[in-house]
Write a protein that binds this DNA or RNA. Structure first.
Length: 286
DNA sequence: CTTTACGCCTGACGGC
DNA sequence: TGCCGTCAGGCGTAAA
């Protein structure tokens, strides 16, 4: 599931292949994605040049001479790169081909992804306007999280997955960051201390940067036609590891349902001392 | 305002 | 072997 690091890896991978290239051919095979693909998009894109390749949260933004193309990968979306695309297969929903021969093909079995056209300033688009800061930007910090979390009773894991709070963190990296910070995912967001949020913000940065460097290693594979840019083998310490021993303490990783999502954590390394009344609002040593 | 449940969709998986 | 039910997940929406 592409989260921020995966989308950023895709961005870095395709940027040198398509920047300042002209779109020469667009094929849309279904308009039934997360939202309908705008009709007549093909004609609007053909002949336009890619002015920049950007990302906001999990959204990939291809800025054109006029307007912006927004791509979202949902759960199962991925791009492949061809010079001569073969006959389209199952779930190959659209192709965008460029001068010089590069062709991007989008495949998404679950169709939670999106292809949208934005006229004018992308940051004013409803999907982007309310996004919180990028976790790797200067405006993201422990004090920011602390301030936004006051009076929130929902689980901290849900809190950091709220894209209005911070953009681009999904279920996998939320679990990993909380493990790194030693914070139990179910702790009410409003009950964590300033110090714990300082730790959490650093853990979020660390996990994102580690994932980005994993992705960086796969960039060389982008001309391999079987490759899926952005789908790299990230090493997870808790995500998807229910029942396996924690690599720090050996206790079995547990899976707890929080807000309709599975949440993986180590019951020992991520203890709930945070929410015991005696420990509220103080740094308990971690 | 915050919090919660739901629906979209398909592939993988387990049970029979 | 094959069928069927269940689950996973991002994210907007609606309802509480």
């Amino acid at each position: 599931m592409p989260e921020l690091p995966e989308v950023e890896t895709i961005r870095r991978g395709i940027e040198p292949l398509i920047l300042r290239r002209e779109i020469v051919r667009v094929v849309v095979r279904t308009d039934r994605l997360r939202w309908p693909v705008p009709s007549g998009l093909e004609r609007r894109l053909e002949g336009q040049e890619i002015a920049s390749v950007e990302r906001r949260g999990k959204y990939l933004l291809l800025r054109l001479s006029v307007g912006t193309l927004l791509v979202h990968f949902g759960m199962s979306g991925y791009l492949r790169i061809f010079r001569e695309p073969p006959v389209a297969g199952r779930h190959d929903h659209f192709d965008i081909c460029f001068s010089g021969g590069t062709c991007l093909r989008f495949n998404d079995s679950r169709r939670f992804g999106a292809l949208l056209w934005i006229d004018g300033d992308p940051s004013a688009h409803p999907l982007l306007a309310d996004l919180g800061p990028e976790p790797l930007s200067d405006s993201f910090s422990g004090s920011y999280l602390f301030q936004r979390s006051r009076n929130r009773r929902g689980a901290v894991k849900h809190f950091i997955m709220d894209h209005r709070i911070v953009a681009g963190i999904g279920n996998m990296y939320a679990s990993e960051a909380l493990f790194d910070a030693g914070i139990h995912p179910a702790v009410p967001a409003g009950q964590l201390s300033f110090c714990r949020y300082a730790t959490l913000a650093e853990s979020i940065r660390k996990v994102m940067e580690e994932a980005l460097s994993s992705g960086e290693k796969t960039l060389g594979n982008f001309n391999n036609e079987s490759a899926r840019p952005g789908y790299f083998n990230m090493h997870f310490k808790v995500y998807g590891r229910a029942g396996e021993p924690c690599e720090v303490c050996g206790r079995p990783i547990e899976n707890l349902r929080i807000g309709q999502r599975s949440s993986f954590f180590c019951p020992a390394c991520q203890n709930r001392a945070d929410i015991a009344p005696a420990f509220r609002e103080i740094n308990n040593g971690r």
